[in-house]
Amino acid sequence: MAEKASPPHHAGHRDRLRARFAKAGGDALADYELLELFLFRSIPRRDVKPLAKDLIARFGDLGGVAAAPVQALTDIKGVSEKTAIDLKLLQAASARMALEGALDRPVISSWSALITYCRTAMQHEPVEQFRVLFLNKKNRLMADEVISRGTVDQAPVFPREVVKRALAHEASAIILVHNHPSGDVTPSGADVEITKTIVDAAKPFNIIVHDHLIIGRETTASFKSLGLL
């Protein structure tokens, strides 16, 4: 009679990691361990600990892994297109949950939730994008849209398009948001100029520009706090 095959060596590790998570939650696990837990279902029959560590080393942290483009993810040995799409699902779910924390709430009382959403959605973006948040008369967030995407260091913004979308949403106010992939959140001369142009374009329609946020990898800059708006 043939001997029963032994379970793979990583099976016990997976059980122990799941048990740690069940007992103490995500705070007790390192980024690569949380990533391991996620990859267990995507890659069920292989030890994914080395892969999780490789992904964190390449993209910096868990958020960076989830935000990486599919092509960049599949460039990592062991990551199939299916696994890459699973990781993009993780990013989409995180952004959606962050948005739900800010949606339909007054921005003054939910400012931290708003910043969390913007950072979740944009801080790891490899190219610059320009996003507009639309607020109603009670300053509640109704919707947001990505107006433009650019190269690694610029995103063309069209003030008339911003105002057009605000009118379509019947917004009374807007918040401008864009990211700096370089990580430096210092407003550029072009950032200041485009903000002034949008403010002037929105004024005849009684649409207020509350703020312009610049999202970096580690920090966020506010035009209002900097006295630029």
Rank of each mutant, 00 (worst) to 15 (best):
F130H: 15
F130G: 12
R131Q: 14
R131T: 10
R131E: 15
V132P: 00
L133V: 02
F134K: 02
F134V: 00
F134S: 01
L135C: 01
N136F: 01
K137A: 08
K137T: 10
K138D: 15
N139H: 07
N139S: 07
R140D: 02
R140T: 07
R140A: 04
R140I: 00
R140L: 00
L141I: 00
M142H: 10
M142I: 13
M142Q: 14
A143F: 03
A143D: 11
D144C: 03
E145R: 08
E145Y: 05
V146G: 10
I147Q: 03
I147P: 01
I147C: 04
S148Y: 01
S148G: 05
R149S: 10
G150M: 11
G150L: 10
D153G: 13
Q154H: 10
Q154D: 12
Q154T: 12
A155L: 01
V157N: 05
F158R: 14
F158L: 11
F158N: 14
F158M: 11
P159Q: 10
P159A: 12
P159C: 10
P159R: 12
P159N: 06
R160K: 12
E161R: 13
E161N: 14
E161D: 15
V162S: 07
V162I: 05
V163G: 06
R165A: 09
R165Y: 04
A166F: 00
H169A: 03
A171G: 11
S172E: 06
A173D: 06
A173E: 04
A173F: 08
I174Q: 08
L176C: 04
L176M: 06
L176K: 04
L176P: 00
H178D: 09
H178F: 05
N179A: 11
S182H: 15
D184E: 13
D184Y: 13
D184N: 15
D184V: 12
V185L: 09
T186M: 06
S188H: 08
S188N: 14
G189C: 04
G189Y: 14
G189P: 04
V192S: 10
V192N: 14
V192F: 13
E193Q: 14
E193D: 11
E193W: 10
I194M: 10
I194Y: 11
T195K: 09
T195Y: 15
T195H: 12
T197Y: 10
T197M: 08
T197P: 05
V199Q: 15
D200F: 05
A201F: 05
A201P: 00
K203W: 08
